[in-house]
Design a protein around this nucleic acid. Structure first.
Lengths: 322, 322
DNA sequence: ATAATTTGTGACATCGATTTCAGGTCAACC
DNA sequence: GGTTGACCTGAAATCGATGTCACAAATTAT
């Protein structure tokens, strides 16, 4: 274990001088600097980051809290880690399985100074509980929330959903069915608003087709197709929560011998990897870049600097399901 | 910042006694113990983990090094993080983008005691370079390698590939085409062996159908389909590197109006999430459990204990593409 | 020539914990 | 009564870095 003291002894100087020589801060004579650098090189010196963290109170480690590493989370994680590493930060993972006690463990890690800040991809805890930890470091949320101390990097899905609806309309579909996620999420409300405004604009009857709540998995998509086959005429098109639901619909339709988009059209949301494989029309959600913004917010708080956030936009990726 | 000294003062004892009271090691009178615990509670004490790491030389942090968070990596990561967290470890991510210098950064993090051990999901560096860091902590590889100091948790794909081939044979396919990954990987060699033995067993002509190397992405699968349409009669069935290639084939076939499995059958490998959505027959690879084994190896080295590894097996998941 | 800076260096305190060590009390045992 | 050992406690060293401070030498300014 070559530490700074060891190097100091070998180079015939004090530990303070070694520290100065290596960090480049403060005055050190050229000659001693050379000697220290040579010795450090020779004895393969590497600073102990734990000592540094203890001394400075800064770890340059960020915690990312997510329920599981399903695809959209992986996308976010990838973008976040890239941004972090480019700026000399490192990312520590906390996997909660939507278990509140695991979320608390992540919060405790912040309190115990294992990480400098946290980003919650998704959480179940009370917002007030999470907020009570902001005194230990910045906390950012991807999940759309409103709280003075916890910035959230959500994108307003009103715009994205409107793009989907306009696209379906342009393709000639008139009986459009909405498949929503959890009604308690703010994003769902935005989508409902988007649909209402869309109907008003084109003078469509918003009641011509029911909406469905709490859909999110492929199995929900499968159920949806079967439900319509048993309960009346299937709508022209479906605007869905996400690609996973849409994928379930496409898969079930194929199994049942239905044709897409002739029998019904489907538009996904997110543009995950597999959307391409399924040839699914979808709304591209720039998750990667958004994760970069989450990092920028955290960094600007930690380093107390202004950082610009990249403006992000949804856009349509048309494929063969509409 | 309530530290142990603060608690000591408030409780009217020495820091040593506080430490003993909280850790439960050594003698402390019942009365002082109660007092210390009460004060710690009251002042919301939480130990500083950096101080602990510095003192003990142990961080209980593990590094996971991967090129990117594509699906199979996410699966591995999920399994690894779960196992780690269950045992009081935390996982820090290093994303390399297959860049050797980024791999070195992860190795340096081990040297600087930011993590206690590393698991490489995949790497490009020289094995000898990585091996030179094993003196700083255990290093485990998922990528199949052979090195005395770096255990690798690979599964022999001979067995898995044989299952795929036997299945295709049982379904009546005789002209079977192999789509391999990188020929330098040991797993590819195992698959080639599996195919040779398979042909010998059923007296098939191993030259009746060419094999393809270096395939790994959906786009490769698409190219493959088009290549066959231009270059002669398409084989009965394809055994592929992974689900991604298989997905590309399925997608392209649908686009071109080919029927699967009538025009050709496809068997994937890995059983990733989207295989289900595509209704893809594939070989299930227990990545999750294997990640758990990777953790067990690391833990057994760190804590110097014996831990059993779970025996893992490939199995077929039949869906509609064969 | 003297005052004021700039440069260069090491001793020492500090970050926040654990752990060793030395010393003290008290009961039990021979 | 003296020895032994369990119980209890706090001072001080330690982990490995940084940074303040005091002091000295060299350089520049007045």
């Amino acid at each position: 274990m070559t530490n700074i003291k060891e190097i100091a002894k070998r180079a015939g100087v004090s530990p303070s001088t070694v520290s100065r020589a290596l960090s480049g801060k403060g005055y050190v004579s050229e000659e001693k600097k050379r000697r220290v650098l040579a010795v450090a090189e020779e004895f393969d010196y590497a600073p102990n980051l734990n000592a540094l963290s203890l001394k400075t109170g800064i770890t340059r480690r960020l915690g990312l809290v997510a329920p599981a590493f399903i695809e959209s989370v992986s996308l976010f994680t990838g973008g976040f880690v890239r941004a972090a590493e480019e700026n000399g930060y490192t990312v520590t993972l906390f996997m909660t399985g939507s278990d509140v006690s695991k979320e608390v463990e992540a919060l405790e890690a912040l309190r115990r100074k294992q990480v400098d800040a946290l980003v919650f991809v998704m959480f179940k805890s009370d917002l007030s509980l999470i907020a009570s930890y902001t005194k230990y470091g910045p906390i950012v949320s991807w999940q759309r929330i409103i709280h003075p101390n916890i910035p959230s990097v959500f994108m307003n899905q009103y715009d994205g959903y409107t793009i989907a609806l306009e696209h379906l309309y342009a393709r000639g579909y008139r009986r459009i069915c909405n498949i929503y996620g959890s009604p308690t999420r703010l994003n769902t409300q935005s989508r409902i608003d988007a649909f209402r405004d869309f109907c008003a604009k084109y003078e469509l009857d918003p009641l011509a087709c029911p909406s469905f709540d709490d859909m999110g998995n492929p199995s929900h998509g499968e159920q949806m197709v079967r439900w319509w086959l048993e309960n009346g005429q299937i709508p022209d098109a479906f605007a869905t929560t996400n690609d996973r639901v849409a994928a379930g619909m496409v898969a079930e339709a194929r199994r049942l011998g239905l044709r897409i988009p002739e029998d019904f059209a489907v538009c996904g949301f997110d543009n995950l990897d597999f959307a391409d494989m399924l040839d699914l029309t979808t709304i591209h959600y720039p998750v990667n870049e958004q994760a970069g913004n989450a990092f920028s917010i955290i960094r600007s708080r930690i380093e107390e600097i202004e950082l610009p956030l990249r403006p992000l936009k949804f856009h349509l990726v048309q494929r063969s399901t509409t």
